[in-house]
Design a protein around this nucleic acid. Structure first.
Length: 511
RNA sequence: GGCCCGUUCGUCUAGGGGUUAGGACAUCAGAUUUUCAUUCUGGUAACAGGGGUUCGAUUCCCCUACGGGCUACCA
């Protein structure tokens, strides 16, 4: 395959949905795999749905994820502009060409007339209520009106659209790279609007014209476009571009984690996970939608997760660098059925990627968190903390949650546990332990262990029986990272102080 | 309603006319660990249903069911 050119063509109608991200990713992987070009085109032909900031959001999201754009909005390129709203003249030219060649016509019907037509058809029991071969000759268009009247209407500035004249009784077969042959009869299609009355093209026209002009070789897009793909084939034909028509690949959809339907923002809200790459603030309502980035997901982990949602390499490998993904990717191995979105797996990937990061980077995150909370800490100590905690976290912000014990002494020990398990022997052993600790100048995990064994032994306790009490004394909690390592990082004086504080508490409460 | 697409463990999936139907996440149990987590070991768990074709079907064909998408001057 030479000169592969693919495009990701979102509409700036809001934040980029995670399903859109996956579409972009598959396009990107395919382009890179074949040494091709990845193009970003903005399909902003619906002015009523335009949302300020959405385009910028899309660009930033792709950037964060490392989905590189070779050509298009941003980097520019030989087929600029790449924003469809800036290409109106081009579409008009081709729409008029289609009228001249008899493949399209002007239609002047008002909204009311269209509605009346549909009602009429519905009541007469027609299978479908479409503007097509069966009804077009009963409507007000350049097929039914005398040419002078058409010209008069056009000159008078009357509202009109340009419709495609769907051919009758044709079998249209397209070869989808994922689904194989898909055949549709043109009876099922209607006379789609190509140019709207506001002068903008519809998706169908703009898409076909741009893909041709931009020399797109493979159209990789969501399954929602499969039903209109035959129409697009017809358009390529009518425009005389069938020989260079791109190949199609329609991707399966992302489904709700539970229940029926496709994944929506509601599901994320309901189950507590993001469905957008970055946090998004709606410019009209001010409503905030959480993003994967802000939730603590690493871009590489999200990419890995998404890549495997609907595609697999045919091996048992699960962890992929982006280069490995590029190397292994192929359209043939994309599955045909929709994939339920399971955030559990995304978290697992994040955990895997997080622990592979160098300690310095984790320490950097910890620094920010500590600074925000107003705690000072040496880099050396931060690195030790990070090394102790890195296998215990799923998100970067978990770091502070677990490191907090080093900076904030417990307000009081876990009361339930103390009431149930605390004994006078423990009390005496910990007193002894704290006393001996005070004499130590060079604290190591090994020294601590010895001191603990010694203190325990004198009260007829096993070292293990004193471990939990010591943890409670130091952190207030019954679980946490390795006790000895933790105590070493905490330091001798802090340990002694916390033990004494706890012993006072238990004394007053229990004895 | 019409048309199109789909259906393997709870989830993502591998497989493919004869397999103990494989892996991963989740879950459960055991081991390790002072605890939790990690790690390791093991377990539970799937071919939507019915007809064909065939010596044999989860795999091929048809039907049904179910799911999804489309059916706009939205993309």
């Amino acid at each position: 395959m030479t000169n592969v050119r693919v495009r990701f063509a979102p509409s700036p109608t809001g934040p980029l949905h995670i399903g859109g991200v996956r579409t972009a990713l598959y396009n990107f992987l395919f382009a890179r795999r074949h040494g091709g070009t990845m193009i970003l085109r903005i399909e902003d032909t619906d002015q009523s749905r335009f949302v300020p900031g959405a385009e910028q959001y899309i660009v930033e999201s792709l950037q964060w994820l490392g989905i590189g754009i070779d050509e298009g909005v941003g980097p520019g390129g030989p087929h600029a502009p790449y924003r469809q709203s800036e290409r109106q003249g081009i579409y008009r030219q081709y729409a008029e060409q289609l009228i001249r060649s008899g493949h399209a016509y002007y239609a002047f019907d008002t909204e009311e007339e269209l509605e009346a037509m549909r009602t009429r058809l519905r009541q007469s029991g027609a299978a479908q209520q479409q503007y097509g071969p069966a009804v077009r000759m009963t409507m007000r268009n350049s097929l039914t009106l005398p040419p002078e009247e058409v010209q008069r209407l056009l000159n008078s500035g009357a509202h009109y659209v340009i419709r495609f004249k769907i051919p009758e009784g044709q079998q249209i077969t397209l070869h989808d790279l994922i689904r194989g042959q898909v055949t549709v009869n043109s009876e099922q299609l209607d006379d789609k609007v190509l140019m709207k009355s506001d002068g903008m093209p519809t998706y169908h026209l703009a898409n076909v014209v741009d893909d041709h002009l931009m020399e797109i070789t493979h159209v990789i897009r969501g399954e929602e476009w499969l039903p209109s793909a035959p129409l697009h084939v017809l358009l390529y034909r009518a425009l005389g571009w069938e020989v260079s028509m791109p190949r199609f690949a329609h991707l399966p959809l992302l489904l709700k984690p539970d229940g029926n339907g496709k994944l929506s923002k509601r599901d994320g809200d309901r189950m507590g996970f993001p469905v957008f790459p970055l946090t998004w603030t709606d410019p009209f309502t001010g409503e905030q939608s959480p993003g994967f980035r802000e939730a603590g997901y690493l871009p590489a982990a999200l990419i890995n997760f998404l890549a495997l949602l609907g595609w697999n390499p045919g091996t048992e490998q699960e962890l992929f660098t982006i280069n490995e993904l590029i190397e292994a990717f192929s359209l043939e191995r994309i599955s045909k059925s929709g994939a339920r979105f399971d955030i559990n797996k995304a978290q697992w990937f994040n955990q895997q990627y997080l622990r592979k990061l160098p300690d310095e980077q984790l320490a950097g995150w910890l620094s920010q968190q500590l600074e925000r909370e107003g705690h000072a800490c040496s880099m050396e100590k931060k690195l030790r903390i990070v090394a102790l905690l890195k296998e215990r976290i799923t998100f970067p912000h978990d770091l502070y949650g677990q490191a907090k014990i080093f900076f904030v002494p417990p307000a009081q020990p876990n009361a339930d546990w103390v009431r149930k398990k605390w004994t006078p022997a423990i009390q005496r052993a910990l007193e002894e332990f704290a006393g001996n600790l005070a004499k130590q100048n060079n604290l190591t995990a090994e020294v601590l262990r010895q001191l603990l064994e010694q203190a325990a032994g004198e009260q007829q306790l096993k070292a293990g029986q004193l471990m939990q009490p010591l943890r409670v004394a130091l952190t207030g909690e019954t679980t946490g990272p390795d006790l000895m390592e933790m105590a070493v990082i905490l330091g001798r004086d802090a340990c002694i102080q916390r033990i004494k504080y706890t012993l006072q508490y238990t004394q007053s409460v229990l004895f």
